[in-house]
Design a protein around this nucleic acid. Structure first.
Lengths: 185, 185
DNA sequence: GTCTATAATACGATAGAC
DNA sequence: GTCTATCGTATTATAGAC
């Protein structure tokens, strides 16, 4: 019972890391198995297909975002919450400069695939936009929904440029600008 | 001589279309060959490897951007040029809502790969940012470089959200906002 | 539950006839 | 230059012993 859970968790953890750094298509189940110290054949005891493993990875990403949001929610004002979110982007600038946003880059990849996992991955971006929109709504903005989508997309755009330029300072500077913009409300 | 050129062009054209809609990894040389009406083995007369075909695709994308820029340059002011660029994004909203930006999504994919083609694809995003920066510089902004990167990333972010939400209206509205922002300078 | 061996297939790339 | 046939390998997935 204990070992079983551990192996499954190992596989999902390695899957997250490898899918983030190499992408879903380029990550093989053999890669994930090896990184987890699990024989290839055993992967199929836990996941019937590669896509099912992806579902578990996305599920964990969703959990992590929820727990990050829980921390942001401790801030008193909606502004402070958005700023805390933007700070968390700056904090992870090294990783996302190297490999892009784990959610955004996966979304791009799955949008070229169709199927069920596409919708699930996209839901993560929608969830981010909805959370941001909720903050703007609380700030009394009638265009809250548009602003939430805008902020979420802007962060993705900054990350894409930092990734392409291979320069984490782009994230510091431009997310800093976004923070200033949020503070003006 | 004529047929040769035609077949090569056919392959690159089909490659562009398929790589845009399915991504580089998921597009097979057999796909491209079939779409071009060329037997698989013959592809290797024109391109020694799959990556070499990608280089030709990127080269064509660069040419197209240059010719688009040439049209923008007809506008009298740098503002008008940037607005023309943003209008061209709105014009192609159906295609980019479905498949993302041909340059941005390819960049995301190649950034997870390393190798020579990564640099080449990223250079396309850099070129866009540099062109935008040049417009801002002409407008007398000392932070022109930062603004060019910002505008380029913002467009990419909008496209990513429209792609994830599967809604071309997102592009109309949010690129419209960017146009209003540019007009304020 | 675990692990080895392997099936089944897909794909990039090549050989060689025409 | 063109095309068919095929090689070599990688990869998802399964069979079946333990």
């Amino acid at each position: 019972m204990r070992t079983t859970t551990d192996k499954r968790k190992s596989l999902v953890k390695a899957g997250r890391r490898l899918i983030h750094s190499k992408g879903f298509n380029a990550t093989t189940l053999a890669d994930i198995a090896q990184a987890s110290g699990v024989p290839l054949g055993n992967v199929y005891y836990y996941f019937r297909t590669k896509e099912e493993l992806l579902d578990a990875v996305v599920h964990e990403q969703e959990d992590e975002f929820r727990s990050r949001v829980a921390r942001f929610e401790k801030a008193a004002t909606p502004q402070a919450r958005l700023l805390a979110f933007l700070d968390s982007v700056i904090e992870s600038r090294m990783s996302i400069t190297r490999h892009g946003c784990p959610v955004g880059s996966l979304s791009q990849e799955m949008n070229k695939r169709g199927g069920a996992s596409r919708a699930r991955v996209n839901r993560q971006l929608v969830a981010r936009a909805q959370w941001a929109s909720a903050q703007f709504r609380e700030m009394g903005r009638t265009d809250a929904q548009e602003l939430g989508v805008w902020l979420t997309g802007s962060v993705q755009g900054v990350i894409l440029m930092a990734n392409a330029l291979n320069d984490p300072a782009v994230i510091e500077r431009q997310i800093g600008q976004l923070k200033a913009w949020v503070q003006k409300f």
